[in-house]
Design a protein around this nucleic acid. Structure first.
Lengths: 120, 120
DNA sequence: CGGGATCCCACCGGATACTG
DNA sequence: CAGTATCCGGTGGGATCCCG
């Protein structure tokens, strides 16, 4: 017997496309990629260290973007029992799984720059 | 003599990361991915056909997003000599080169949904 | 048919100040 | 140290109307 299709295939298959848009939305925001890349490169970092490493970001934005990433389980937040308090942020395995995609985007972006530059 | 580094390698190598952010920016906007995927699937389409296929988009947004994509050389716009006028849009080869990335994002997005759903 | 012009609002993101 | 509160300008995107 014939296996039933799990997804209705309309012309654009927008149900499937939503997953791509989800990824875009999660990565969106002025600092998300830098935060992820910084944590991926440097390992666990405290709030202030992140702010120092990511040039130009304010504490409000850093805080909000980290909360977004934590909500999406990409970043783990750990409060250390010290005085004054310190908090460590680190990429979760799920967060690290973004490395391949970010790298693809980095490569495509570089190729794209050349295309645009050659456009005159 | 020593070749000079073209990019200063700070801890996060933000110059390289910019290319990834570029890609994000180009793909950003509520409808870009749908437009690209629709053109990729259906081939050349007229303005109205696109609007019919992409449920919910208004003419203003469709127009603006298409202009963005055209500026970035992802889409080719062709005005046909008919009455009343018709315009055809199609993906450029450069635009088609996004297919792999969009597909990666689609797969990651699906995996991410499961992760989030299992979070309880 | 293929858009542009206008209005409108929600949200993004920066600056500054403040708190436990 | 690690944030939150507040204010504020800019932009994204929808609705509607209009034009060649």
């Amino acid at each position: 017997m014939k296996k039933k299709e799990t997804v209705a295939l309309d012309s654009t298959c927008s149900k499937e496309l939503m997953a791509a848009t989800d990824t875009l939305t999660i990565l969106n925001g002025k600092w998300k990629i830098q935060i992820i890349a910084t944590l991926n490169y440097s390992g666990p970092l405290r709030f202030m260290d992140l702010q120092r490493l990511i040039k130009g970001i304010g504490s409000k934005m850093l805080s909000r973007e980290l909360q977004d990433l934590e909500t999406n389980l990409l970043v783990k937040r750990t409060v250390l029992n010290t005085r004054p308090m310190t908090v460590e942020y680190e990429l979760s395995p799920h967060g690290k799984s973004l490395e391949r995609i970010i790298n693809s985007m980095r490569l495509w972006g570089k190729a794209h720059r050349k295309k645009i530059a050659a456009r005159n």
